[in-house]
Computed example of a mutant assay.
Amino acid sequence: MRQAEVYTNKCMAGILTETDDGKYIFRYNDPYLLDKKQTAISLSFPKSQQEFVSDTLFPFFYNMLSEGANKNIQCQTLKIDEDDVFGLLLATAHSDTIGAITVKKI
């Protein structure tokens, strides 16, 4: 199992988990849910106490990844299998992302 903290504008919003059986789970943390000033990180993840579960990496997070030649270079440089999308997300989405969301390995 691998996990990451998901931040929006440097505020920890929740936890993204890749389970041992290849499922992905996103869950908001309670302080973020209770803070009425904080909005959902995406339309696909409305603020809720439910867990969001998927058999593939959620498109919202997948779209944070590089494609094509950039992805190849990142995978070679970081020694990450090109099919390890969660590993690539953990290695590249912790800073300097487009937008307010960052993902930091736990």
Score class of each variant (00 low, 15 high):
Asn72Tyr: 07
Ile15Lys: 05
Leu78Tyr: 11
Ser66Thr: 02
Cys75Trp: 00
Gly68Trp: 09
Thr8Ile: 13
Gly87Ser: 00
Lys23Pro: 03
Thr92Pro: 03
Gly22Val: 11
Asn70Met: 08
Asp30Gly: 05
Ala13Cys: 07
Asp81Asn: 07
Cys75Ile: 01
Gln49Met: 11
Thr92Gly: 07
Leu57Cys: 05
Ile80Lys: 01
Cys11Met: 15
Gln74Tyr: 02
Leu34Phe: 15
Val53His: 04
Arg27Gln: 14
Leu90Tyr: 03
Glu5Trp: 03
Glu51Ser: 11
Ala69Asp: 14
Gly14Thr: 04
Val53Tyr: 02
Leu33Val: 13
Asp35Gln: 14
Glu51Leu: 07
Asn9Gly: 11
Asn29His: 06
Cys75Tyr: 01
Asp21Asn: 12
Pro59Val: 09
Gln50Asn: 11
Val6Glu: 03
Lys79Trp: 13
Asp21Ile: 11
Asp84Cys: 01
Met64His: 00
Glu18Leu: 10
Leu33Asp: 09
Gly14Gln: 04
Glu51Trp: 04
Ala93Cys: 13
Ser54Lys: 11
Lys105Val: 06
Ile101Phe: 05
Leu88Tyr: 00
Ile25Trp: 02
Gly22Asp: 12
Glu18Ser: 08
Ser44Asn: 14
Asn72Ile: 06
Thr8Lys: 14
Leu65Ile: 03
Lys36Arg: 15
Asn29Ser: 03
Glu5Val: 02
Asp21Lys: 09
Leu78Ala: 10
Leu89Thr: 02
